[in-house]
Amino acid sequence: MLKLVDIWFRYSDSNRYLFQRLNIEFREKELTLITGPNGSGKSTLLMIAAGLLEPERGEVLFREKPLKKQLPEARRFIGILFQDPEYMLFNSTVYDEIAYVPRQLYEEKEVDKLVRDTIKILGLSEDMLKRSVYQLSYGEKKIVALGSILSYKPLILLLDEPLESLSKYYRDKILDIIERLLEENKTIIIATHDPDLFIHRFNPKIFRLEIADT
């Protein structure tokens, strides 16, 4: 489904390569955990897989074709949840936030249905839709940010630390949503420094990143 082939990557302000000859394949309908210490490049790997960062060498393949050549249309199949939900919320209300991508793809009537379906999946009340995103708690923001990518039903979900800094209530809620997504045969890739929370509940493939000496 999504393949990273011979990836070399370093940030423009750094001499250190974060990835050298990185090869990884994310298969359809699988849950993969990307683990590793801080600074090992978990978030960067998700950004590269989503086509948001370009590797110095190597290629990201989506359905066996270069992802780069399929952008921006291929973005409807790849949803990425950022570690900090603040970055993702730029619309004024929860409704607009969840409707942001569907509005680029469908008529307003269908958009409305998708938003209401998403709210049900998230376990939120419809009253929430009118609320300003700035008035939400951190947990609510994370759930709404997740909703903003679930609404257009991507095939691949890249989730960056989806449970970080959340209360048990919201952690359980997100784990339930992940379980449901796996039942719907979605491909899920999660970057986390705490894989145990997922290993206990699912049977994921684990990919561990280490910090290179050079």
Partner: peptide, 18 residues
């Protein structure tokens, strides 16, 4: 740092040119 992340988050949800 903040604007770079917002830019990427915005771009990640542009399925058409925007």
């Amino acid at each position: 740092y903040f604007s770079r992340n917002i830019y990427n988050a915005y771009k990640s949800r542009c399925v058409r040119e925007c």
